[in-house]
Design a protein around this nucleic acid. Sequence first.
DNA 1: TTGTCATTTGCGCAATTATGCAAATGTAAA
DNA 2: TTTACATTTGCATAATTGCGCAAATGACAA
Lengths: 135, 135
Amino acid sequence: MRKYTEILKAISDEKRLRILRTLIKSKTGMCVCELMDTLGEQPYNISRNLKILQFLGLVEGRREGKWVVYSAVQSRDEFLKYVIKAIDSIPNEFFREDDLRMKLRLNLRQAGRCVYGVNSRAWNEAVKKIYKQIL
Amino acid sequence: MRKYTEILKAISDEKRLRILRTLIKSKTGMCVCELMDTLGEQPYNISRNLKILQFLGLVEGRREGKWVVYSAVQSRDEFLKYVIKAIDSIPNEFFREDDLRMKLRLNLRQAGRCVYGVNSRAWNEAVKKIYKQIL
DNA sequence: TTGTCATTTGCGCAATTATGCAAATGTAAA
DNA sequence: TTTACATTTGCATAATTGCGCAAATGACAA
């Protein structure tokens, strides 16, 4: 039973919930620096929480050169399927900024791959531009 | 978003998960002493955790004389429905003893109501009898 | 009222978990 | 090899949470 409660506890942390949800929504998976820019978190917070999610079988990571790309695992387990559905049932309004920034960050990719590090000039300008548009 | 993570955290605790699941399975609701006997927990652990579940809208309590009867709330909320389904997807084998003891405890009722306090003679004999049968 | 039983709650301690910093590791390009 | 960047991890500390005890509350019957 421990496995089940560990999974619930893992996603009961807001940071991990946002990381997992972002990876699910991204479809393609994302590298650590893309998650950092998207969620505005420190590298160790992203990395450590990804490790926890990975240990529980919720995400998986693969190295691609300097980058490590994580993606949500598509599970056949009934428990996990309902957990994912529950996450997906949380109204999008709570993740509006995450979703916007993820879209923006993935737009910086070239040939479907991350090419900028964290907090890059390109990223900062893209964010500034959008926030100006919105306000 | 806090509300959602709080609910996940609440059921990520094994004691609370077992309390909630037991109430769901019981259909009729159960009083604190029935939960104590069923789960083998101290009164303050049952009571405090019920309060947390109640605060989050997962269970509701009503007083019936000396007893306070709690029951699982049937929610219309999509998030909660999937959370309940997830709980229901955890294999029953993990709750075999809980289920047996719940059935045993509810069998002691008269006219559908709890009539024995915690750790009563009737309860102890019922348990001893069943455990002798099984072993 | 008094006593008894069922349940709740305040308080302090123990255990767990999250977080930041700094250092370490891994990878590729200069 | 050196450098730069991406990611991970060990360690110490802060914050949160769980738990037991003892006392309080609520309800009913003697």
